[in-house]
Design a protein around this nucleic acid. Structure first.
Length: 587
RNA sequence: GCCGAGGUAGCUCAAUGGCAGAGCAACGGUUUUGUAAACCGUAGGUUGUGGGUUCAACUCCCAUCCUCGGCUCCA
């Protein structure tokens, strides 16, 4: 264990040292380049540069070559300490304005520098002994990045690299990235004919094709049933509403930049919905509510439209029109903890059903800036304790982020990573102090009228994003209960077609999704195409099977299971599909 | 939105100012086939879009739309 920790520390130092060497190579090859920062990150490092030259991919091998020379020279990393004044003089003279900015923010006292060869960088270290310790690295890509991550600052050019202790690890990582690219949902979405997003329709607007539509319908039916089982009422609301409604809710001001322009209907301004909340609130308000009727849980697969800046769109993960599995819970103060707990458990049930590994975060307010939030300190304290209490009770690991709460309340977010390790938020469970007040919600309690608590939650997050994650998670090999085509029947000759059609008919009657490939093609071709469509089960029928009245099952691995009766196949497949199984019963 | 790279047949990609091409897919025909690609043929294009330079533009210039990698922002 201690060994592992030591290794991890070494690798981190080595990656950071590699960033220095890259900066050194870049400043030598492109004189006048100013330096930003260059930390070690997961699997590698980056460095931000400000230079007239625009880096192109062809520059990377040249920079790598220079880096290899520096590494070969085994230049020792030497630490030196200077006063702030000396540091400012040194970097000021070199015109390193970004370094000067960093130094100015450091406390007075000594400031450490690391040098190797002729290159010196402001750095708190530590580093490897000399550049010879850097062995297996590769520069991967160039990207833009704002200085200090603030879009008001100038944009620098960032070069990313990866570095590992051994050649094998580096090669394995490169290979892994290539494999990950093959399961990218955008690629599989086209290959498996699940969905498309086209120029003609518009960016961020998804066309769900028949195969994707089948899966979506199964997902939607499943999540609706799970909601109903837990006491939710499924409701529906319109896609547009009078602007007035959004002014009341406050969205027309605080959510303005994500909303589309209004449209004129009979001289009135209408707005396409970016949220479902106001509609559920109107339903709540449609009658006088009593504590006896709470909690009220209104759920909807609600399609919303949000303006997302062009550069942030990403396949199904970030789109402009999407459907949330949204719900709003209205309840009394003494019901709130149980409701949040139930939401959290519901989310965990979702994650488990699909085999997702998730990461939980708790977003809290910044109590030093109450002016940025609605609701008083007492409410916030209570709400945060409720959320954190549930996480503690369930014993899950979670990370707290102060100041990350919405202005209207704290929240629990649950994220899942995609094929290439990018995290995407699916579940969100949020307190809302704003809307009950804006709409003056109340309920009749034993001692007069009171304001209900309101929780907003989405578990899948959006059907689109969830589906994108799902495609990548399974690499297109959906478990039987989700597979758009669960089995394909392949005939060898035209003589078996009647038997194949009869089997298909019986399977369809049993509720299975099956297709027959009766083309006069070779069995090898049919197998290849069916495999590439990622159909879980192939049922092969040739003269032998037709004679015996059975089928040969070919599973994904290529293994054959001969002599199965149609009845066996149907009952086993039905069982597997009904249990939301992640594992195939035939394998 | 910002920085950069791109956009050629349904898909993957050629063509460096001089006749727009290949493989796969599609379509037509032949093949009745036993475990990951049978064979022959046909068709397919305003090179993202609009403008400009030129005798001549996929190629150079300008604008614009979209995609990709990041940044910022978020389900």
């Amino acid at each position: 264990m201690a060994e592992e920790k030591k290794d991890a520390e070494f690798v981190h130092k080595m990656r950071h040292s590699c960033a220095h060497v890259m900066a050194q190579a870049v400043t030598e090859l492109f004189p006048g380049t100013k330096l930003g920062i260059g930390p070690a990150i997961e699997n590698g490092f980056y460095y931000d540069f400000d230079t007239e030259h625009h880096f192109v991919p062809e520059d990377l091998p040249k920079i790598e070559e220079r880096m290899r020379q520096i590494i070969k020279a085994r230049q020792p990393f030497v630490c030196a300490e200077h006063s702030k004044k000396e540091a400012l003089e040194k970097f000021g003279a070199a015109g390193e304005k970004y370094k000067v900015e960093l130094i100015n923010e450091l406390q007075d006292g000594t400031i450490s520098f690391y040098s190797n060869g002729a290159f010196t960088d402001l750095c708190k270290g530590p580093h490897v002994g000399d550049t010879g310790h850097i062995k297996n690295f590769k520069l991967t890509h160039v990207a833009g990045a704002y200085w200090r991550g603030d879009e008001r600052n100038p944009m620098l050019q960032r070069i990313y690299g990866i570095a590992f202790q051994t050649r094998e690890e580096l090669d394995a990582h490169v290979k892994q990235m290539e494999e990950a690219a093959k399961r990218d949902h955008r690629r599989l979405g086209a290959e498996l004919k699940l969905f498309s997003i086209t120029d003609d329709c518009g960016p961020g607007l998804v066309l769900w094709h028949p195969r994707g539509g089948r899966i979506r319908k199964i997902l939607e039916d499943w999540i609706r049933n799970e909601n109903i089982k837990r006491g939710y009422e499924m409701v529906y609301s319109p896609h547009i509403a009078r602007l007035h409604l959004w002014q009341t809710s406050g969205h027309a001001s605080f959510y303005r930049e994500n909303m589309y322009s209004t449209m004129d209907v009979d001289g009135q301004e209408y707005q396409i919905k970016p949220m479902n909340c106001p509609f559920h609130i109107l339903m709540y308000k449609s009658e006088l509510r009593s504590y006896r009727h709470l909690p009220l849980r209104l759920a909807e697969l609600g399609t919303v439209y949000r303006y997302e800046r062009s550069g942030v769109l990403h396949g199904l993960m970030r789109v402009r029109g999407f459907t949330q599995d949204d719900a709003h819970i209205f309840c009394t103060p003494d019901q709130i903890a149980a409701e949040v707990e139930a939401c959290f458990d519901f989310s965990m049930h979702v994650m488990k059903t699909f085999g997702f590994k998730s990461k939980v975060t708790l977003s809290l307010w910044d109590e030093s800036k109450p002016e940025n939030y609605t609701g008083d300190a007492k409410d916030w304290k209570m709400a945060q304790e409720v959320l954190e209490g549930v996480l503690k009770k369930r014993g899950v690991e979670y990370e707290c982020f102060k100041g990350e709460a919405a202005f209207y309340g704290p929240k629990i977010d649950i994220k899942v990573i995609d094929a290439i390790n990018r995290p995407w938020q699916l579940t969100t469970i949020q307190f809302d102090f704003n809307l009950p007040q804006k709409f003056d919600l109340e309920y009749v309690a034993d001692s007069g009228r009171k304001r209900p608590y309101m929780v907003h939650r989405a578990l899948l997050g959006s059907i689109e994003r969830f589906f994108g994650i799902l495609v990548e998670h399974y690499a297109g090999w959906f478990p039987l209960w989700l597979a758009p085509v669960q089995a394909k029947i392949l005939t060898l000759t035209s003589n078996e077609v009647p038997f194949a059609n009869k089997l298909a008919e019986d399977m369809k009657k049993a509720g299975l999704r099956v297709e027959v490939d009766d083309r006069p093609e070779k069995i090898g071709l049919k197998i290849r195409e069916t495999h590439m469509e990622k159909v879980p089960y192939m049922l092969m029928i040739g003269p032998k099977e037709a004679e015996a009245g059975n089928v040969t099952l070919r599973v994904r691995s290529g293994k054959n299971i001969p002599g199965l009766t149609p009845g066996d196949v149907i009952s086993t497949m039905c069982k597997e599909a009904a249990e939301y199984s992640l594992e195939n019963l035939y394998s």
